[in-house]
Design a protein around this nucleic acid. Structure first.
Lengths: 251, 251
DNA sequence: CGAATACTTGAGATTATTCAAAAAGCGTGG
DNA sequence: CCACGCTTTTTGAATAATCTCAAGTATTCG
């Protein structure tokens, strides 16, 4: 089902001080001495696109931060229906302190680099210093808000609104990571296949395809190939999401 | 739309030591001296069934624990579509430290008693002692798991599976709060109207009604009136939920 | 270039919704 | 205790949205 390449220990592991996600990840609030303790128990791993990082139910002896790339969290029912329950971007946290088994499948959607911490030492460190737990609480509260926003999408939005919402969210995130100011035209690549989009949105891939095509035909978006999206008028796209018109633009 | 009775300050506010939710709420890990600090900033409020505790977007100057009764968290779209994103039971936490405005509507579904803490002092206390933050992190992680389980339900389950899942969850919770051991027949009252069930499940109330009737006609559940449910065979109900057959019975 | 994967499109079936009306349940006052 | 009005729930019929199955086309990778 998925490729089977092994995770590769990365060749060089950068110092925390030079880390690109230093200010957003679970370690964001750590003092220098705390960082040094983290350095002791951390190691990098790389996964090629498509590879599974952990399977739901598997024992997990580490927690980790996404350094670069994208991973997905998903759940699968006995008969194969799957629902994505989270999209992990750089600085996002993988795993749950205090829990030994993975609750969800974690899959690398692009080439992925993660900064792992051995779980027991991490838990010990967490108990000793409040900074990690404080930051993790903030991040978890944010994720909970995101999950609840997604519940509204899954439960109440139409297929068209779901697609528009997903594109808007990816576009926004992309804009926030990018140096540029407020470009009139937003251009970016979808990091997900149609099937992954379907799993995220609670749709079939055919419905995703049809709705993407519909938005394209109506000029809400433009496509180069199947992945590269141009949004000529962001307001127009937002109007298709079903969300409040005011709600947090360019957060 | 909702009744407009004022929240009533409760007459007597029990000591934390005697509190029924003491061991599960956000204060669960607090030492005696920390409890004393909490006593200083706490006050009780009561809301009659149907009343709104806070509206999304309103300023909230307190956080709170549910002491008794049930409340719902929900989101409403401009055109009135609403999605429930959480069910708050005794010991559950309301509000988010560090945030001034409510993100969701909170509505008392039954008569409700909450233990409020003024927000600023609570935040200060949190910063000073790690016990509250630690417990809040645990609770938030549990809520995140619950939200993600709900995402699977909303995105991938059929109407029938949704209803069966909701009934099973309420039955389980009810069993866990009840003194009895493993009774063969489970009997309990649905704490939600058909409309509230629909809002929780991402369905219309008519579909809820139809599926409840279908389960009744097929003997999966029995009904006395519209609220009182008997489950003659819990395994049979679980088989209708679409979940793994093994997954956490009577957790 | 060829095979494999990803995507699109069509037609028909299915599921859930919408609109409408009737029945059941609930609380109040006579 | 019962009648009345109100809310909640049930049920029906028609409609709309999405899914399923089935090709066919485009894209990617070796």
């Amino acid at each position: 089902m998925t490729t089977a390449a092994k995770p590769r220990p990365a060749d060089r592991v950068p110092d925390c001080v030079d880390c690109p996600i230093r200010h957003r990840a679970v370690c964001a609030r750590c003092e220098t001495d705390e960082l040094q303790e983290l350095e002791q128990i951390k190691y990098y791993r790389s996964y090629p696109a498509g590879q599974t990082v952990v399977w739901a139910g598997d024992r997990m002896d580490f927690v980790a931060s996404v350094v670069s790339g994208i991973a997905t969290l998903s759940q699968t029912m006995e008969d194969g229906r799957t629902q994505m329950v989270g999209l992990l971007l750089p600085s996002d946290f993988i795993g749950r302190p205090g829990r030994d088994d993975a609750t969800y499948d974690v899959v690398a959607t692009s080439d992925l680099v993660v900064c792992c911490f051995r779980k027991r030492p991490f838990e010990t460190l967490m108990a000793r210093t409040p900074h990690i737990g404080q930051r993790l609480l903030e991040m978890t509260l944010d994720e909970l808000d995101a999950a609840r926003e997604w519940m509204l999408l899954l439960g109440r939005k139409t297929a068209r609104e779901k697609i528009a919402s997903l594109i808007a969210i990816i576009a926004r995130r992309d804009a926030s990571l990018r140096p540029t100011g407020a470009a009139r035209e937003v251009v970016f690549d979808l990091p997900l296949t149609r099937e992954a989009m379907a799993d995220y949105l609670g749709l079939t891939l055919e419905t995703v395809s049809r709705q993407v095509s519909a938005l394209r035909k109506e000029g809400v978006i433009r496509l180069e190939g199947t992945r590269r999206v141009t949004i000529p008028d962001f307001e127009r796209l937002l109007a298709e999401t079903g969300d409040d018109s005011d709600g947090g633009f360019l957060v």
